[in-house]
Design a protein around this nucleic acid. Sequence first.
DNA 1: CCTACCGATCGGTAGG
DNA 2: CCTACCGATCGGTAGG
Lengths: 225, 225
Amino acid sequence: MLYQMVEARDDAPLDVRSRVVAAATRLFAARGFEGTTLQEVADEVGLAKPSVLHHFPSKEHIREAVLDTILSHWRDTLPRLFFAATASEGRFDAVFGELYRFFADDADLARVVAREALDRPDETRRLLRGPVAPVLAAVAGYIESGKAHQRHHADVDAEAYVVHVLQFAIAAAAVADVTCKALGTGAAVRARYDREIARIAKTSLFTAPTQDAPGDPKPARRRRS
Amino acid sequence: MLYQMVEARDDAPLDVRSRVVAAATRLFAARGFEGTTLQEVADEVGLAKPSVLHHFPSKEHIREAVLDTILSHWRDTLPRLFFAATASEGRFDAVFGELYRFFADDADLARVVAREALDRPDETRRLLRGPVAPVLAAVAGYIESGKAHQRHHADVDAEAYVVHVLQFAIAAAAVADVTCKALGTGAAVRARYDREIARIAKTSLFTAPTQDAPGDPKPARRRRS
DNA sequence: CCTACCGATCGGTAGG
DNA sequence: CCTACCGATCGGTAGG
């Protein structure tokens, strides 16, 4: 079967559905689902409200489209992440960097996911026990084997560690622009913030400094605005 | 000056304002400020909507009362926290446990704070640079001195570490009942979850296992329902 | 502390 | 893709 491929180039003209999803993602991230009106979405896309509802039968359908888009984006990067995790030792920086950067590069995605966890705990639970579970289990297995080889701390709770690191990455990315300001002003602050979360994740797992390059994921590259 | 003391006993009858704040805290935590209506708050308190508005001139005033209550509760525990942090070495478990338990004991507080950070980044920034800043700086100073004595890892970014640990504790408490389910079912799961976040915070700071009792904050004691 | 009610805006529909 | 409009509900007020 053949699907119309959606061009991912940032400057390519997007179809109406994609423009609605992009606008809704931004607005949901900033104000939440309940705090966003269809009128605001329509205004941002440059359409009348009924025109938006021609493409999505209800506001709830827009929410689902936003979340599906994030989830499918993530599904694309998961295999790469997983491969990096299992292919060789000492690749922790790359793996964590990949995970963190996915959300840090576009804080709106992190904010939408964080809001979803707060707004709809049951759906989020389903997601964690469903499609996300195998990935968590796989990474936990990798950590367990690392424990057996004394590469990782013996008292790491592999499953709990993975869950915490995942939610740390999302939470840190979601509120980075807020909490970074507690570190003072200036451009270097965000780099310190990013470096420290990577260091925490890494040091709490490995028994000794790895042979990796020092744990600094590249500073987040911003996607828009 | 003399103030009317508000009795903290859980079973003591509360005045109307306190009951409104308690109901609003629960509702704001679950649905967010925009997702909560004055009617729902009134219903939960058992009053008519205009009666609620007799005690608080607007919905916005209820939000402020909710946040003030959380902040002042926290101000009460901060001195204790700070004293524990600076009084002696090896008290990390107690300090982090205190911080984490404050939010873990009542996840609604963590959720309200998390939502506030997402909904009103500017206000949250002001809070971080204002009243919260001295506490962060003090703890960061304690960590710096620990680095000088080789008790803490040399590459810890003290200021960034403190900010991350704070937001980790809040985020972890806010979504604990969601993400714990990714660890399986059963009563022990939450204890593992709590123990692992304490271990991560501790291991990423200290150069070697401390002389403390193993890093397990008591399992969160639930305050209500 | 209530009943009754306000204008505004919500998500969504009709019809073209 | 639009104008015009729907019933419902929003936060808040009047008046007692």
